[in-house]
């Protein structure tokens, strides 16, 4: 296993991150970008994040543009300067730049559900199986994806709208600062069942950094990724 501080080395250039509303796609995408940036770009010269979320008005990765760009990760999103506060479903044409650039590792952060994933289709030609890893974030504490049937329904809906099979699952089962090891284990078990049914694999298990001790999680878990709460203001949890 190739790890760096628990970080799995993505074996493809483009990582597409999908998932249910509120599953933690953006928190995962931003954390992954920050950690890849910290580690270095590996075989690539550049690292970029494409924020294709045209569903949510708040908590989009482009809100952390300054932090990401400070870490050397350009953020591609809206065409307009009011990208944090505009609610128009538009995207900048230059989103194609990192997708075209063979030297640029690119994380694609989508909006929630199949409706959020639909936007991907206009960029379909870039997402070849050789170049792209399709990841779906699962939070088994979200009411609609808490059981196998609900989570499967969402997986299938995302696959149907994008025309892509989900390669890997990200177990991001948490309750913010109330997360414990049992939460992560519950999500892992759900993901195992989903993998058995779909042929996907668990790409990694996430845990909130500083809240869950990774040593308390089962040793057999492959990759553990600590997530920082980059998107959530700290004062909300006092």
């Amino acid at each position: 296993m190739s790890t760096f501080n628990g970080l799995r080395e993505p074996d493809r250039r483009i990582l597409v991150v999908t998932g249910h509303y509120g599953s933690g796609k953006t928190e995962f995408s931003v954390s992954l970008a920050m950690r890849l940036a910290e580690r270095g770009f590996g075989p690539y010269k550049r690292l970029a994040l494409c924020d294709l979320d045209i569903i949510n008005p708040y908590f989009r990765s482009r809100e952390r543009r300054a932090m990401l760009e400070g870490a050397g990760v350009p953020v591609y999103g809206s065409a307009y300067g009011h990208e944090v506060t505009a609610e128009i479903p538009e995207l900048a044409a230059n989103i194609r730049a990192p997708l075209e650039d063979k030297d640029c590792r690119t994380i694609v952060d989508l909006g929630g559900n199949d409706s959020g994933a639909m936007v991907l289709n206009q960029f379909g030609k870039y997402f070849t199986p050789e170049s792209t890893l399709f990841l779906t974030v699962i939070n088994a504490n979200r009411p609609e994806t808490r059981d196998f049937d609900g989570a499967m329904e969402h997986l299938r809906a995302i696959e149907a709208i994008t025309g892509h099979k989900v390669d890997g699952l990200i177990n991001n089962t948490h309750l913010l600062r109330e997360t414990d090891a049992d939460c992560v284990v519950k999500g892992h078990r759900l993901c195992e069942r989903l993998c058995d049914a779909t042929g996907a694999f668990i790409w990694c298990d996430c845990y909130p950094e500083g809240i869950v001790d990774p040593a308390s999680l089962p040793e057999e878990y492959g990759y553990l990724m600590p997530l920082g709460l980059y998107m959530r203001p700290g004062w909300l949890d006092r």
Binding site: G22, N141, R142, P143, R146, H174, E178
Partner: peptide, 13 residues
């Protein structure tokens, strides 16, 4: 059981 909900969903539910 505790669940994680977005405000607007929780209000509606």
């Amino acid at each position: 059981e505790k669940v994680l909900m977005k405000g607007n969903e929780a209000f509606a539910e």
